[in-house]
């Protein structure tokens, strides 16, 4: 998983179609930015903080990488179990560091598909400074990943 020095930022405003009455009382739609858009950076800062907290627990051997991604992506155990096609109790075992050691590659591939990551992401967290650009490409059903590292043109 790539963790960037500066938290992700909203590059382009996202507009929603909202309905409201105009001055004549007629209900009309308009494409508008969310009223809460000015606070969107708080969301991304919060997400970056969640990664740091989860990573600390991961390196302290409190949780497994499966727990890391499940919690970060806010999936409930039951939901994850259904998506990976195993029982909830099996998922619970995989949430602990010891249980994680027993997960087969095939099941790990299923987890990776749900989390939209590659297998390497369960074992590797790459911290990337702002002047570096890292690009990963996936191969062989998420088993392999090629990483290309270049200077970030925006920062050089």
């Amino acid at each position: 998983m790539i963790i960037t020095e500066t938290p992700e930022q909203q590059k382009h405003p996202h507009r929603f179609l909202m309905w409201d009455a105009d001055k004549d009382g007629k209900c009309v739609s308009s494409l508008t930015e969310s009223e809460f858009a000015s606070d969107i950076h708080l969301y991304y800062e919060q997400r970056a903080m969640e990664v740091r907290c989860l990573l600390a627990r991961l390196t302290d051997n409190e949780i497994s990488p499966v727990y890391f991604f499940m919690d970060y992506q806010q999936i409930a155990v039951k939901d994850l179990a259904s998506r990976v096609r195993v029982s909830a109790s099996t998922v619970k075992k995989h949430l602990t560091p010891d249980g994680f050691k027993k997960v087969s590659i095939e099941i790990l591939q299923r987890y990776a598909r749900v989390f939209d990551i590659v297998l390497a992401d369960f074992f590797n967290f790459t911290f990337v400074p702002d002047d570096i650009h890292v690009r990963n490409t996936r191969h062989n059903n998420r088993l392999l990943q090629k990483t290309t590292i270049t200077a970030n043109e925006n920062n050089t």
């Binding site: 929603f16 909202m18 309905w19 209900c27 009309v28 009223e35």
Partner: peptide, 19 residues
Amino acid sequence: EDQGTGGGAFRLMYGAFLQ
């Protein structure tokens, strides 16, 4: 509001329907 409701928990879009 911002999760595909059109605002006011869909109630505003229902107003447009009733009009």
